[in-house]
């Protein structure tokens, strides 16, 4: 009896040893392509992806497309030539990035898209958020503000991102559709200007608009940078508390401003879930797990009431 048990244990140890040795001899290498690492949000994605690579003990090759789809394709081709087992891909463009996915398809390398999604070629899964939902969350906040202020009409400034850019359009659609659903489209009016997602431009545009007319009830922006630029103007013009303000992203700075009561809200998008999800998606797929076509990470509206829930995540992923 003891001998049998000893044999079983020895066999088990051998098996574990063999599996361990096999895993060590054939480690997976993932290629990770980012859209543009100069943006804090993408840098946060990278940090989360790197943490996942480490946790799963896979080797990750990383490249930066610098928002250029040609560079993106060259990067991907180079990673494919190095024999990556899976490509975690953050598309720089809806259409033009398909070329990179097709290149991976030709080599038979599976693709997991995260955060930014291209709509061509074959991919295993997309881990990210539905951008119209972020606009919808802004709409939820505005509807709440409408009730809170109790005025028949609200007028505000809407700082848009880059004209024609996919996320900007999606957020605008999400916001307007939400207000339509709440029957508020004719009760809330917007002065809309593009500020290119840029803080300095957000500041200048807001300065000009507020110099013309200071009676706005709110300012919303399609990202936190623009609303933080507008916040400087609101401070200078002593309009804090009079003009209500909300952005999108959940940058640590925006969360701080919410805690201080200067900013009313932001819409948190989760870089940890998205960046880590790209790597996890590759890992699970190669391990034989069947994944759904979309793994969606919801946007969350952050206000003073729940801001403390998000500070820890933001501090963890937005460092340096």
């Amino acid at each position: 009896m003891h001998k049998v048990l000893a044999l079983a244990i020895a066999l088990m140890l051998l098996t574990i040893g063999a599996v361990g040795a096999a895993a060590a001899a054939q480690p997976w290498t993932f290629g990770v392509s980012y859209q543009n690492l100069a943006f804090p949000y993408v840098a946060a994605l990278q940090k989360a992806a790197q943490a996942a690579c480490k946790a799963l003990a896979v080797k990750c090759l990383e490249t930066d497309a610098f928002n250029d789809t040609e560079k993106e394709l060259k990067n991907v081709e180079s990673m494919l030539a190095q024999g990556v087992n899976c490509l975690a891909f953050e598309a720089a463009s809806l259409k033009a990035s398909s070329a990179s996915i097709v290149a991976a398809n030709k080599k038979g390398v599976p693709v997991v898209q995260f955060n930014g999604k291209a709509d061509g070629g074959q991919w295993v899964t997309f881990v990210g958020s539905e951008q119209p939902d972020s606009g919808a969350q802004l709409g939820v906040w505005l509807a709440g503000l409408y009730k809170q202020l109790g005025k028949p009409q609200l007028k505000g400034i809407y700082l848009r991102g880059v004209a024609g850019q996919i996320t900007d359009l999606a957020r605008n659609d999400g916001l307007k559709n939400r207000l339509k659903a709440e029957n508020l489209l004719d009760k809330i009016s917007f002065t809309e200007q593009y500020a290119d997602y840029d803080r300095g431009k957000g500041q200048s545009v807001t300065e000009s608009l507020l110099t013309r007319d200071k009676s706005y009830d709110f300012i919303v922006a399609n990202n936190d940078d623009m609303i933080l630029g507008a916040l400087q103007v609101a401070r200078q013009f002593k309009l804090i508390g009079k003009v209500h303000m909300a952005g999108v992203d959940g940058l640590p700075e925006a969360l701080d401003a919410i805690q201080k009561g200067e900013l009313d809200a932001t819409v948190f998008q989760d870089p940890e879930g998205q960046g880590g999800g790209g790597i996890w998606g590759c890992y699970l797929h190669l391990s034989g797990v069947k994944l759904p076509k979309d793994i969606l990470i919801p946007f969350k509206l952050v206000t003073k009431a729940n801001v403390s829930d998000f500070v820890a995540i933001a501090k963890r992923v937005y460092v340096k």
Partner: peptide, 13 residues
């Protein structure tokens, strides 16, 4: 131009 066009709410493009 920038200030005037923004004040007039002319679209950015």
């Amino acid at each position: 131009l920038f200030n005037g066009l923004v004040m007039l709410n002319v679209p950015a493009p």
